[in-house]
Design a protein around this nucleic acid. Sequence first.
DNA 1: AGAAGCTATGTCAGCGCTGACACTCTCAGC
DNA 2: GCTGAGAGTGTCAGCGCTGACATAGCTTCT
Lengths: 354, 354
Amino acid sequence: MNAGLIVRSVTLDDVAAIAGVSAKTVSRVVNNDSKVSPETRKRIQKAIDQIGYLPNLAARSLATAQTKLIGLFTPPSNSHFFSQLVRTATRSCREKGYNLVIEECDITCDSAALVYKSGLRNLRCSGIILPAILCDDMDLLDLLEVDSTRYVRIAPATQLSRAPYVTGDHAGGSTAIARHLWSLGHRRFGMVTGIPAAASTILRRDAFIKTIIESGGSLSDFDIIELPHLLDENQGPAPLSLVDAGRLAGQILLKKSQRPSAIYTYNDDLAAGIIIQAHNMGISVPEQLSIAGFDDSDIAQLCWPALTTARQPISEIAMQAVEILTSSPCIPHQAIVCSTELVIRQSTGAVGKD
Amino acid sequence: MNAGLIVRSVTLDDVAAIAGVSAKTVSRVVNNDSKVSPETRKRIQKAIDQIGYLPNLAARSLATAQTKLIGLFTPPSNSHFFSQLVRTATRSCREKGYNLVIEECDITCDSAALVYKSGLRNLRCSGIILPAILCDDMDLLDLLEVDSTRYVRIAPATQLSRAPYVTGDHAGGSTAIARHLWSLGHRRFGMVTGIPAAASTILRRDAFIKTIIESGGSLSDFDIIELPHLLDENQGPAPLSLVDAGRLAGQILLKKSQRPSAIYTYNDDLAAGIIIQAHNMGISVPEQLSIAGFDDSDIAQLCWPALTTARQPISEIAMQAVEILTSSPCIPHQAIVCSTELVIRQSTGAVGKD
DNA sequence: AGAAGCTATGTCAGCGCTGACACTCTCAGC
DNA sequence: GCTGAGAGTGTCAGCGCTGACATAGCTTCT
């Protein structure tokens, strides 16, 4: 390691001296400006390669007041949905010449605005991606607007016209799942919902219930568990993973005297937990219990039996978010709704005679 | 969105003017320098809060030639091991006042040095975390040293004394798994290895084989599949996930006339794939087939039956890596080996009468 | 021929911060 | 009273780059 060793880095001026032009012209070449003659361009390019010039992003940021950094908040219990989101966002950023910076925020203990203030904020990202829940923290949105930082919301619940957002068709996916389960003959349902503050939680829950009731069911056919209740029950030091939360929910739901024949969960991670719990209790899936999730994240095909779920186009959501943040000029109130699609796998089946 | 609107940001000078001191003194307060009288400090702090001063990291980077950014390379098929690594690294960076930037690199198609050059390089990260495989790309290491960028390797295979590294005890974990399987009566083994260029692949494989042979087995008791072979077979456009690769490996291994009674894989993701494939083929685990992985990443407890595996302290590895990069002064050739631990779960059992 | 318009390039201040160094007090020690 | 040390603060250049503007050398049109 040569840390400590002083290395004056190669600058525009060095290149300029070699190529016999001004630094500004080199800058033009580096930034692909037009209005540079082909010969000059070639000569400069040669000089750049020769001494291995590397633009200094800090200097550029300072001069342009543009960092080319995209910030992304993630929740502490990482679902598979988020892992995929992070991955695709990384790739999209790169394609557009930006870099992705990750920030973790547990809204159950910290205010998102506070986390932002003490962390990402003075990085002055060019744009910020705010996933569900976080994106409904009005203090945070205010703060971002004060800083005039661009941001995009993923699945916002409130003030939809305030800023651009991307979301999946939560209601549509839920409706499809409900129809599917009903048509298989299920009449008694367990549900595990997400965090109530998230729009997706409400939309997925309500669409499901509404569809069942429209089909002929009633509200008394449901056993509903809310995710926060599960998280609260956790004794351990580490936050409960969503899969573990699902397992816990399974313990509760499957012990009921009137056991549901189908369970629908807020996302695939929770559903995976239910499947595991069913295995542990000797309940066979899908013969004795059907389970459906949401997202179609990696985990869906990793369960056994593989999970019936509503596919959200996670990669597309991430790409669109990055696109919105990096488009120039910025389009004020873009709203993109990605459609969801029912994916039937082996975790759901016709209702059996228990 | 007020992009486009010109907002001269609040600077040190603004604060200085209000507090009636020089910008330098404000800088001292912001950076927690000693040698500022308590009263002055208080007065300045008040001014800072009053106008909401926010240090400009780009300017600071330019002045100090220090970006306080840590870069982390990830492979394209994200294993659970990496998801966890990313998460913990994010947290560790934050605690130390750094930010984490992710870069994806598929060494099967691109040279790591090239990816670095075209991406992370001109961000001039203060430090770079290089996971296995990547960290044995000597071109990349050369490049980093030319730039005098600090880096830390995770599980390097070659030139161990070249730079600091963190690694798990691959051989130890593998040996423990081998002893465990042998003691359960297994005598015929399937193996799925990792990418041969990685030290971990070789260490895990060789320790396993050596232990079995020492126990009385012979080389002819093994059926070995190498990960790259599986990846090559993939027709689809998207790269094969490790779980899918495991499934594929299962298809091959479990069709053999002399079917192994136990399969040991390079990591948990691959093992999960094998379990799924066993389910699909109606082979019961662990009664008819024992399966063991490596890492004890989240996926291990997400399988059913839960996976017997060798736990690597992933969080500790990430924390140590960040620690090495951020410690000051930098310690030249630190080498940290984290111990691994056998975790016995339900995917392994005594060999049955098939 | 002169005006007008273009293209290709140069000049220079300044983005916000910090390191090196200078300066002014105060106070202890002789 | 003088010296030296140290604490507290200020001055200023310069990190590497780009935006705004100026300039030089063309061509084209009137």
